[in-house]
Design a protein around this nucleic acid. Structure first.
Lengths: 228, 228
DNA sequence: ACTTTGACTTAGTCTAGACTAACTTATGCC
DNA sequence: GGCATAAGTTAGTCTAGACTAAGTCAAAGT
């Protein structure tokens, strides 16, 4: 009913809000006003104002005092932005020698300016890759995204072989540290112990040896059982 | 006196105005309100408003009812944008298979979003080139631009060997046509005749044979004497 | 059931940058 | 030299998207 008009060009801000809402509502059902405000570094009333506009244009559903969810139209737009962002990140690292901890900001600005055509050309130049430098799946041009259930290293079963698939942060300092520790997508990991009270996690790396890492970082390391 | 503050980030619109003013005032001394309006497709009062703001921030000098000129600060900012645009155009054609008639719009949007670092990396990947795909000189990172006196093919001396150096349009249809005629930077040309009343120009292409072209297009083909 | 508290929304303001309508300046023609 | 015309400017309005201040809703504790 709401999607009477085809793809109207979206403003930079609208694109940012849709992306934020996508990320926030990917686990729980609703994205709250204050979470969106915190993610975008704006004041809550600014979010309320934007919610009205997005809701009026049929990109989100709003349940007052509860939160928002993307409509199909909104989800399509959000996935388009995520595809842009991830293709850009990979292109910059693969072709222009960016480090995986430095690409985020550049991609964040470029994603609003690139054409669909340029993204597709970049993707093609890279062989239509499925994952970005952090291991996050790249949505296809058609708007499909791979959904794999991954478990944080902090929750992995003891003694079981896992593969590190995705590093779930964009923070340069954390990314730099993790790369120094050899913790990049594709590595094999087996948790050998967990200290109580949110203490560190010990694990062995393949290739590589025994390591210890804080719980907070361990939660960012998304893994998959090596056999499954 | 006016450049008390160092490089404040400029808005997208400001960047567009500075670029337009640079181009318009490169030949004559002043850029007029209506010429700027025509180039940016905005109404003259919008230009008057922006002139006030640019003038207040020390980027231009305004002589009421006569026009504007860039200050040194403004010229630096304009050349930075032109460098971005031209590096992007070259990168897109060299590395992502864009045609020289299709790069302009993409570069026009990207130039506002890229960082200095990305431009420098692209330039480096291309071997710090001096000319864009249309033969226009690329300003250096330090803000210097090559100034060569070129003569339009329409004004070239009869029987003298010239080199086509630059094609001075961004219009895709014209660029496509010129490329089909073999008229790309680097080609040798000798004018053999000129019809009166803005009639066509006949010339020989090296390599290539005898050709005829309308006066309007001939004015876009900037050449240099082959010996000079 | 009342109150407290934190989250959310409404109301009103600000800025950049566009617009139209109306006025002013400069120029060129007779 | 006076007037028509084109170009430029001023004045006032609009929209997106931010803000602060103030009010409202809902959930939790007494």
């Amino acid at each position: 009913m709401s999607a009477l008009l085809a793809d109207v060009p979206l403003s930079r801000s609208v694109e940012d809000y849709l992306k934020a809402i996508y990320h926030l509502s990917s686990q729980g059902g609703f994205a709250s006003t204050s979470d969106i405000a915190a993610m975008l570094l704006v004041a809550p009333p600014s979010v309320s104002g934007m919610i009205r506009r997005l809701s009026d244009s049929g990109l989100i559903e709003h349940v007052p005092y509860r939160g928002v969810q993307l409509t199909n139209q909104g989800r399509r737009a959000a996935l388009r932005m995520i595809r842009r962002h991830r293709v850009l990140e990979l292109y910059l690292t693969e072709r222009l020698q960016y480090d995986w901890d430095g690409v985020h900001d550049e991609a964040e600005r470029l994603e609003h300016a690139v054409s669909e055509e340029l993204i597709d050309r970049m993707a093609q130049a890279l062989g239509n890759p499925r994952y970005d430098p952090h291991g996050a799946p790249i949505p296809t041009a058609a708007g499909e995204i791979e959904e794999t259930v991954l478990v944080p290293l902090s929750d992995a079963e003891l003694g079981i072989a896992y593969e590190l698939r995705q590093v779930d942060t964009e923070d340069p300092a954390r990314l730099r540290y993790l790369a120094e520790q050899g913790l990049i997508p594709g590595k094999g990991v087996t948790v050998t112990g967990r200290q109580p009270f949110n203490g560190p996690v010990t694990f062995s790396l393949v290739p590589g040896g025994e390591r210890v890492i804080g719980r907070e970082l361990a939660q960012l390391l998304l893994c998959k059982r090596a056999d499954g």
